[in-house]
Simulated scan of single mutants.
Amino acid sequence: MEEMMRALYQDKTGDADTAAVVTMERRGHDDVSTDYFDAVILIIKENGRRQWEIKHYEADGVTAAVHIVATEQIDEWLTHGTNRRAVEWMVRGRVVYDRDEFMKNYRRHLNTFPEEKRQTKIGMEFSRLVRRYADGRSLFASGHYLDAYNQIVHALHHLARLAVIEKGYYPEVTVWEQVKRLEPEIHKLYSELTSGREPLEKRLELLLLANEFEMTTKVKLGSAHLLSIMEEAEEAWSVEDLKERVSFHDYSLDITLLLEYLVQRGVLRVILKETKGRGIQHRLYKAKRVPEAED
């Protein structure tokens, strides 16, 4: 297999825009980290012609997947958490080519997790947590316990990832192993939901209360990114302006729910502005900690 992999990536190491090459071999029959291929080769390009290109190969019954990825795409995956397999390859793969210590510096960057990126990722996870929790609570109230269970499991995953990021680490594929070490109380909530002996309805009822408490303790942390955006301007924000502003940060879909949640928690205040319609007013939003300018 080693000879096959070398043949697939060796010519790329001569390209001026190849920053690094990382390989990952399948560890066992049930290992899905390589998408069931015997090996994955990740070729990282600076200023790549295409953001992401995949090629599949086979020789003598051995399979390999080659992913040619631009550094911008890697950054996007890392920020938005949309391809955790690729992050695992970056973290755990074997570096076979490293121009100007690109991968060495990148892994150091992963371990330090810059504050700006951390705050953005916290904002994303918090918005998803609020959405999953709200959907789970609504389904529970309607008696749809299995659907509620699914939503609350997802909510706990976002809570877990939030806790890991808060500690200064990137969430890995095995996030619950990280949480068990960093935030054992949150790991306990997950264990109670998935393996508790009480009836499902009772487990959900208790977990909804615990989840709500955990969310309340993380409101300041989870809203910091959105508040930093809102403080860029003195005037109040419309929901449309905020949706456009956070669209890059991947939580514009949940912006309406997030805004209302933060209003209820006293983090934001509503500013009403007259419209042409009689008795109808626009609803605008402003961070409470920012004083309003005098008229």
Rank of each mutant, 00 (worst) to 15 (best):
143 G>W: 06
115 E>W: 12
107 R>T: 06
124 M>S: 07
156 L>C: 03
105 N>T: 08
114 P>A: 09
145 Y>E: 14
133 Y>R: 10
148 A>L: 03
144 H>I: 14
128 R>Y: 04
137 R>G: 01
145 Y>P: 02
147 D>H: 15
108 R>F: 09
112 T>P: 00
145 Y>D: 13
148 A>W: 02
147 D>G: 12
131 R>I: 02
141 A>K: 12
108 R>V: 10
109 H>Q: 11
152 I>K: 08
130 V>K: 00
147 D>Q: 14
125 E>A: 13
147 D>L: 15
117 K>I: 07
133 Y>H: 11
131 R>Y: 07
143 G>I: 05
107 R>C: 13
152 I>T: 08
123 G>F: 04
111 N>W: 02
117 K>A: 06
130 V>G: 00
126 F>P: 00
157 H>F: 14
125 E>N: 15
162 L>E: 05
141 A>P: 04
146 L>T: 07
111 N>I: 06
113 F>K: 06
118 R>H: 06
146 L>V: 13
126 F>A: 01
162 L>K: 02
146 L>Q: 06
160 A>H: 07
127 S>L: 04
151 Q>M: 13
126 F>T: 01
110 L>R: 05
126 F>I: 03
134 A>L: 03
108 R>D: 13
149 Y>V: 00
131 R>M: 12
158 H>W: 09
106 Y>E: 09
114 P>Y: 14
125 E>D: 11
138 S>M: 12
